[in-house]
């Protein structure tokens, strides 16, 4: 059973991120194991499905508490998309909604003791980021054709041709680099936040245990460390929500570039 829950008893803060295979699957030379990361991802997805299944089952005019929360989640995402890219952006509602609740459930499931945080691995967050950017590029070219390239060369208006040439020679590389940096920052931000938060939690918990077992005056240190850990724990719940929100809103902002390439 212990393999489901990562090295719960281990004292170093890194071992909680170790990936373990629960079921060896080998397809045509590819290693497609069912790992502890996969397991907790599936748990998160099922919890989300169960939550919205129950929340949407009654459809009461005067909503129950659970239904209100579900509706709040819906209007939250819908308002966000409408506010940034108008009614036109709502065709991406399913994508953004899924991304938000996938990351939120992964982050929150990771807050359970002994659970594995799937979003603390750059492989997971990078996959999400690359998927978002691929959709932006693909849809941008599909909708605007080559006009999508206007994103990298904003119209400058009336200007001397030489001045225009010089400005574009500077602007296009800058715009290109800042576009290429988007998937990197998108992936790294989520990954780094979850990783750092869980390491800090583990460190404070480890301090508390070590100082308490040392006894003597260090007991006070253990109490302080425990309180700090508890505070960080509360902060981590906020971070779990905030990072999912940030990922979703940046997805919408980038998709808006595909909808309206001219700034």
């Amino acid at each position: 059973m212990n393999q489901f829950f990562g090295g719960a008893a281990a004292n170093d803060p890194i071992s909680q991120f170790k990936i373990k295979s629960l079921l060896d699957i080998d397809v045509a030379g590819f290693q497609l194991d069912f790992t502890n990361s996969t397991f907790w991802m599936v748990v998160g997805v099922f919890l989300t499905l169960a939550f919205f299944g129950v929340a949407a089952s009654r459809k009461a005019l005067v909503p129950s508490r659970l239904q209100s929360v579900g509706e709040l989640g819906y209007t939250f995402i819908a308002d966000m998309i409408r506010g940034i890219s108008g009614e036109e952006g709502l065709k991406f509602f399913p994508l953004v909604f899924t991304i938000f609740f996938f990351i939120l459930s992964a982050n929150l499931v990771g807050m359970l003791p002994f659970a594995f945080t799937t979003t603390s691995h750059v492989a997971v967050t990078a996959t999400l980021a690359v998927m978002v950017i691929s959709i932006v590029i693909g849809y941008g070219f599909y909708k605007n054709g080559l006009g999508f390239l206007n994103l990298f060369a904003p119209p400058l208006g009336d200007m001397h041709p030489i001045a225009k040439f010089v400005l574009y020679a500077l602007l296009i590389p800058i715009e290109l680099i800042s576009f290429l940096a988007r998937p990197l920052t998108l992936a790294l931000r989520l990954f780094a936040n979850m990783l750092a938060g869980h390491i800090i939690l583990k460190l404070f918990a480890g301090f508390a245990v070590m100082m308490a077992s040392a006894g003597g005056l260090l007991i006070f240190g253990a109490v302080v460390s425990f309180l700090a850990g508890a505070t960080i724990n509360a902060l981590e719940f906020l971070v779990a929500f905030l990072q999912a929100f940030v990922f979703a809103i940046l997805t919408v902002i980038y998709l808006n570039d595909a909808l309206h390439p001219s700034h």
Partner: peptide, 28 residues
């Protein structure tokens, strides 16, 4: 240069985020 520019853009995006959060708060 691109870093400075995307930093400025990100800061502008905070305003959008604030408005969205305020909307959600109002809903809640």
């Amino acid at each position: 240069a691109a870093g400075v520019m995307s930093g400025i853009r990100a800061y502008r995006n905070f305003n959008i985020e604030l408005e969205v959060q305020a909307l959600a708060q109002a809903d809640q």
